[in-house]
Design a binder for these strands. Structure first.
Length: 290
DNA sequence: CACTTGACCTGTCCGC
DNA sequence: TGCGGACAGGTCAAGT
């Protein structure tokens, strides 16, 4: 599920809720969801205070007073939902939430704070993970060493984007966009949405796309990512923010999950195909191959 | 090295 | 209604 806008939405929610809280207890029921937890939890998590919550690519970084960080990847179906002691349910109106009473059967890790508020890491498919790592070591983990620039970093330019895409010059533009070492944070939804915006067919080979087209793609990518953050991300089956609420971007989507509906630009029927091994949505009139 | 495919898991939906 | 297969927002490892 979560791509950059969803993870950023969770980050903002947690940044408003967690700093100052002290960890009292942690329980997990799946070794892969929190590997090697026992060794360091007692020493560096219990009793530690949350200082701030950061994000890099699709990874959340919860920095602690112990000089350790909780590093969290939600992968496809991960959720981080905060519940205050007085709330019996994930906060929010029932119609706005995908979360019932917690913990539930997808809860993998439960963090309890000194004030009895709790943070639940739910993950239906068990692909996501939480790790406890010294904060100074975070930049050295494999993922961080290879991940590309943040697409919304003001110092990142269309020229940089063009150059980095050439690392994957013989693959499809969609595969290159999804490659986290080229650019951070883009996943299936925003790849399709930005390619539609730039009128590029997702299967187009990277080195055949003009620099001008890549500039347009750069602008469209920034546009959809910013809009999605504004809308609280995209929710289909699983994604919710730190308060258990859904995001609304999908009601603004132009092609993603809109096969059979009209292209908002030219009215042609949107099609679904498979590119880079992923379900891919295009307007066959606006996005022609070659 | 560059590129593609399958694996990791659980749940849901669709066609027979 | 039941059952098998395909598919789902992301990365890895292993294959060519």
């Amino acid at each position: 599920m979560p791509e950059l806008p969803e993870v950023e939405t969770v980050r903002m929610g947690l940044e408003a809720l967690l700093p100052g809280r002290v960890f009292k207890h942690v329980a997990h029921n799946n070794e892969k969801s929190f590997p090697n937890a026992e060794t360091d939890v007692a020493a560096f998590l219990i009793g530690a205070t949350v200082e701030r919550v950061k994000r890099r690519a699709k990874v959340l970084l919860v920095e602690l007073s112990s000089a350790y960080s909780l590093v969290i990847h939600l992968k496809m179906t991960g959720q981080l939902v905060f519940v205050s002691p007085e709330a019996r349910f994930g906060a929010g109106h029932p119609n706005d939430s995908l979360v019932g009473e917690l913990p539930d059967r997808s809860t993998r890790v439960t963090f309890t704070f000194a004030d009895d508020s709790r943070l639940f890491f739910n993950d239906q498919r068990k692909f996501g993970w939480v790790r406890l790592i010294p904060t100074t070591e975070v930049p050295n983990i494999d993922f961080m060493r290879k991940v590309g620039p943040e697409p919304l970093d003001p110092t990142f330019t269309a020229e940089d984007f063009f150059e980095r895409l050439q690392r994957r010059k013989n693959t499809s533009i969609k595969a290159a966009l999804l490659d986290q070492s080229v650019i951070a944070g883009v996943g299936n939804i925003y790849a399709d949405e930005s390619l539609w915006g730039a009128k590029i067919h997702p299967a187009t080979v990277v080195h055949t796309v003009s620099k001008q087209k890549i500039r347009t793609l750069f602008d469209e990518l920034q546009y959809v990512l910013k809009l999605a953050i504004e809308k609280g991300g995209s929710s289909d089956k699983n994604y919710v923010n730190a308060e258990g609420k859904k995001g609304s971007y999908l009601s603004f989507a132009r092609v993603f999950r809109r096969e059979g509906l009209a292209c908002p630009r030219c009215n042609t029927t949107i099609e679904k195909l498979r590119v880079a091994g992923r379900g891919t949505h295009i307007c066959p009139h606006c996005q022609k191959l070659r």
